[in-house]
Structures are given as C-alpha cells and as structure tokens.
Computed example of a mutant assay.
Amino acid sequence: MTRTGGPEVLVARESPTPRPGTGELMIRTEAIPVLYPETALRSGAFPLAAAPPLVFGFQAVGVVTEIGPEVDAALVGRRVAVATPGFGSYAEYVCAPAVSATAVPESLSAADAAAVLMSGSVAVTLLDAAGRTGTETVLIEAAATGVGAALTQLAAQRGLRVLATAGGPAKAERARALGAAEVFDHRDADWTTRLRESLGGATVDIVFDSIGGATAADLLDLVTPLSGRILGYGFLSGAPAQISAADLIARGLTFVGCAGPHWLAVVDANRARAFELAANGHLDPLVESVLPLERADEAHRLVEARTPLGKIILRPTRHPFAASTNSAGNR
C-alpha cells in the first residue's frame, strides 16, 4: 500500500522475506481474505496501525514454515489462520503473533478457511450474544454476503425464522437460498414499511443490524417490546444506529454494541468453531473467486462495489511479483 487512496495504491512489489521475532511465527501464505472493512482503511477513512508505505492486510491462511523464540515448535508444518497486528498479510510470507494462530481442519481448504475466518467467527459470536432460544423471529440485514450470509445459514439451521434484507434481486435470491423466509430490498427507502406490512402486527425478536444510520430508528416499533434486542455490529450506511437510550427505555428494548477489543477477543476465540462448522458442512464458505495476489487492486474494486455474492480470496502465485513483505513493515 503506497499511500491512502483508491485500489490503485495496492501495488505488487518484491521485498525481503521476513523473519519471525519473539512470540511470532511465519507462514507460507495460501489464501488471503479480502475484507470489506479493509477498503475503508485503504481509502483513509480510518487510521492505520502504521503509516504507508506498508504491506497491507489483516488475515491469512497458510503453512507454518518458521517460528521465533518462545513459540511451540510443533506448529511448524501445520496449516493455520493468523491475524496480523494491523498490516502485513497481503504477502507470500507473513509473520504474525503465534497467539493469533488457529489450526485449520485437514478437511477444510485454505480458501474456504480464509472465507469463513471473519464472517463465520463473527456470526457465531453474534448468535451467542443474542441469547436465542430457537423459536424467535430474527431480522438479518445484508443477509446475502459476508457476516450476514453466515448468520442467515446458521440462524435458519437453528430453527429461527429469518427475515432478511439484501441489495437487489440477485442478492435477495441468494439470501432466500441461504434460509431467509422473506427478503426486503434495503436499497428501497421504504423497506421498513414493507417489513411492517409483512409482519401484520407481529414483531421481530432479534435484529442483527449491520446497516445502522437512521434506519435503525424506523425498526424500533417493529421489535418485540420488553424482550426484543438489537445487536449493532456494523454501519454500511456510514454511521452507527441513530437511536438513543430514551428510545430503548420507552420500549423496554436492549441494544448490544458488538465492537471493541473485548468483543473482538471473543470473535477471535470462536474461529475454531467457525472452521468446524465449515468442515462439517454446516457453513458454506461461499467463495466467489480466487485471484492472484498481484490483483489485489482489482479485488478491492470488486468488494468496494459490493457486487460479489461470495468471498474474494487472494492467493500468491509464486512468481517474483507475488513476493513477500518487508521485515520491518511486517512487524
């Protein structure tokens, strides 16, 4: 990443192979997930952990080739998923803290593991936090892709009645295929009115809110009084849910904020659960395409446009321009 800006700032370059320091391991990368939040970080909308130029990226899956001091030697040769301290994963070799490593089941491919690494672990954590009983009606926003797609699959399997939103006919069809009973186009400014009409006086017990903004206030009177809860974990609208404590108190509702270091620590701890669900066929990774690492700029254009129905995965192609990261930038 040469600077903040558009996808063109992601440029393939050769640099020295990194070396793991104390408490670190190095993997030979096999698959790198392209995450929607990464596009905002690349653009400069949020601060980076270090100033560019740097090797971009937050997560990767690969085989451990080297360990630093104070790391279990048994990890060498194992396929793991790792998380970097905020940069460094868009590379052929990636160094990361050993405590971030999660073993990948043998039956799960590297690409599939990369695809569920974030979306699956967040979905599992959200379902736990929702305190579901298995009989509720839930609303899942942006249900066709990413976390929403994983949530839709898992919620439907657990017996919840899933109402969903999606952007456009193709994504609506995908959401239905994943288990949604009804789908509303959230690009329609009146979609909450359509939801109200469909409910016919009934209410939604749990809302998984990834859109945020003013729409959240329109949902308040559609959530079950006294027991209803809203879990806010994203803001595709550009702003968090615009609701106040007074809004919640007047209706007896609960709002759960799903962000911050403590939340992310639980998400990280649930990676193994997400991998097992995918390995056992309970969670479709929904990989749309695997692109060579040097086409990271193209991958970002696709993700930023929100056109893919599945995950975009990067894979090093083992030629000079898919080379590894700068050792200083990697750590």
Rank of each mutant, 00 (worst) to 15 (best):
T17K: 11
A31I: 02
A40R: 14
I32S: 00
P47L: 09
A45E: 10
M26T: 09
T39A: 08
G57V: 03
L48G: 04
L25V: 11
R42N: 04
E38T: 03
A50Y: 11
R28D: 01
R19L: 03
F56D: 06
R19M: 03
A40D: 11
V61I: 13
P33C: 12
I27D: 00
T29A: 04
R42T: 06
L25A: 11
T17R: 12
T22I: 00
G62K: 04
E38R: 08
A50T: 15
A50H: 11
V55G: 15
Y36D: 10
G62A: 04
I32D: 00
L35C: 07
A49H: 10
P53E: 05
T39D: 07
A49M: 13
M26S: 08
P16Y: 04
L54H: 14
A49E: 11
P37G: 00
V55D: 14
G44V: 10
F58E: 15
G21T: 12
P47I: 12
L54E: 13
T39W: 02
R28W: 02
L25Q: 12
V34Y: 07
P52G: 05
E24F: 04
P47Q: 11
T39M: 10
T29N: 01
F56N: 08
A60T: 05
L25I: 13
P18F: 04
T39C: 09
T29F: 00
S43Y: 12
I32L: 00
A40C: 10
G23Y: 06
A40P: 11
G21N: 10
V34P: 13
R28K: 15
I27E: 01
G21C: 09
A40F: 10
E38L: 02
P20K: 03
A51V: 15
G21H: 06
A50P: 12
G44W: 05
E38N: 05
P52L: 03
I27T: 02
P18Y: 02
I27Q: 01
L41A: 14
V55I: 15
G44D: 08
L54R: 15
G44Q: 11
P53F: 02
A51Q: 15
V55Y: 12
R42Q: 07
P37D: 00
P53Q: 07
A40M: 14
F46Y: 14
A40W: 10
V34G: 13
Y36A: 10
G44C: 09
A60I: 04
L54T: 15
R42I: 09
P33K: 06
P18L: 07
L54Q: 14
L35H: 07
A40Q: 13
L54A: 14
A50S: 13
E24M: 04
G23M: 03
A50R: 14
V61T: 12
T22K: 02
V55K: 12
A40S: 12
F58P: 15
P52Y: 02
G21W: 06
R42D: 05
L54V: 15
V63M: 03
T17S: 08
R42E: 03
F56A: 09
A49N: 10
E30P: 10
L48S: 02
F46W: 14
P33I: 07
A51L: 14
Q59V: 08
V61E: 05
I27C: 01
G44P: 11
Q59W: 01
A60S: 06
A60Q: 05
V63R: 04
R42K: 07
P18I: 09
P16R: 12
